[in-house]
Design a protein around this nucleic acid. Structure first.
Lengths: 243, 243
DNA sequence: TTAACAGGTCAACGGTGTTGTCATAAGGTG
DNA sequence: CACCTTATGACAACACCGTTGACCTGTTAA
């Protein structure tokens, strides 16, 4: 079972399955995404996917070496969709902020897929394009290469990580989410100031902000830090000011 | 199978398994952690855990309703360990940095548990203690309450999100991780400067830093931004400088 | 001493990813 | 149009997974 998978370019004989479907990598990825969105991440299995496609599960191994391969394809498709809707303006901070928010929103729109694919390096077309774009924004802004790479890394991972985290939150069953809100309202708000002075002092703010994602705040912090660094560099020292 | 699990306090008849082991929730959690550490996250399954304990897999269902239950117990143990080893010094930035790194390290040491528990609010003792501590550090540093809460939120979520993200990476099977490294080495490094100038210009740095987690960098960016904000506040304006 | 029952065991169910083998229809060739 | 090659779909099997209903037995309290 060595060379089961044939590169897409070389495919020629489009034979339909028993149920009359003509398979393709695109169709498989699309169906997988639909399956994830409609029935949750747990609904994605080779066997279920085969059933949804009207094909024997083992047929999929003609298109993807293993499940992991399929996951990477799904991830890349998501990156592509996000990137396609992004229009950089030339203001590096604003552009990165916009892209970060879009990535985050994209993850929230496809929670299960985001959780499954957030941590993978796909090396596929869309991902490469994203890397090139982000690095371009940073280098044009004036960051020297090592700095640009470091910020690029932190930026991308932060977007992916928060996307996955917040996705996990929204993917929770209704009951579990309400239970969490309840915990905040009852447990935290009622802690006495004697034993937990800081929670008691800020409980109003804690409850107010607990619902929302902290990604925008975290993103702005990251961009603020980057801006600070850039100003230091422009000031000519090249070294962070002491503190 | 409704009331299989008996609360630990009520347990009385400690009957040894066929192989002579006396089970307990603590022993099970401990063995699970050992299993994860020694043989990777994939090695943790009810059946394998049973084998490692010298007990029938189904015995574990006398202590945990399902695998998720077990994971939460493991996570709780991890929070406890992380907090227990943290000694704040009074330097707010250094203390938060240290705590963030510890949380991240704890997650990496037990990837499966970290991924499962990152997005849950437990309201348990250890979690409450952590919230109180972090808020205390920020308020003593001089952040006004709304600001303290915002930074607290970003800090905690970032630590959890990166913990889960990087955990997912290390939880990958060996082969998949090597495949990722290979992708960087082959695909990215070889992109021609004509089509991908920014990647080509920085490929050396990209490859050098791709292995490591970007969490420390992201954490430092967050702390830098917080420090900047604090200085603005001390300068008396209370408003961020324009840019 | 004995009776109750906590808790360990067994066997089974339905699910999973994956692969070795086979069958067949599509496509190029003459 | 008929033939041959072979790409590709289908089938059956393997080893694993979490979970549960039924059973059995040693421990413990009375």
């Amino acid at each position: 079972m060595s060379d089961r998978v044939v590169p897409p370019a070389a495919r020629q004989r489009r034979r339909p399955t028993k149920q009359g479907v003509v398979l393709s990598a695109e169709l498989i990825v699309g169906t997988a995404l639909r399956l994830i969105e409609e029935h949750g991440a747990d609904a994605l299995s080779v066997r279920r996917l085969g059933r949804a496609l009207g094909a024997d599960p083992s047929s999929l191994y003609r298109y993807f070496r293993h499940t992991d391969d399929l996951m990477l394809a799904i991830a890349d498709e998501l990156i592509g969709r996000t990137l396609r809707s992004w229009r950089p303006t030339g203001d590096w901070a604003a552009d990165l902020r916009e892209l970060g928010l879009r990535m985050h929103a994209g993850a929230l729109a496809h929670p299960r897929a985001a959780m499954l694919s957030a941590h993978r390096v796909t090396g596929r077309a869309h991902e490469i394009q994203a890397v090139e774009s982000i690095l371009g924004v940073l280098r044009r802004a004036g960051f020297p290469d090592p700095e640009a790479v470091r910020i690029y890394h932190a930026f991308v991972d932060q977007a992916l990580a928060f996307g996955a985290l917040d996705s996990a939150g929204t993917a929770l069953p209704r009951a579990a989410r309400e239970a969490e809100a309840e915990v905040w309202r009852t447990t935290y708000v009622r802690l006495p100031a004697e034993t937990h002075p800081h929670i008691a002092a800020t409980s109003r703010h804690l409850v107010a902000t607990m619902r929302a994602s902290s990604y925008p705040a975290a993103l702005d912090l990251l961009l603020t830090a980057a801006r600070t660094r850039l100003e230091e560099l422009r000031a000519g020292t090249g070294h962070p000011r002491p503190h």
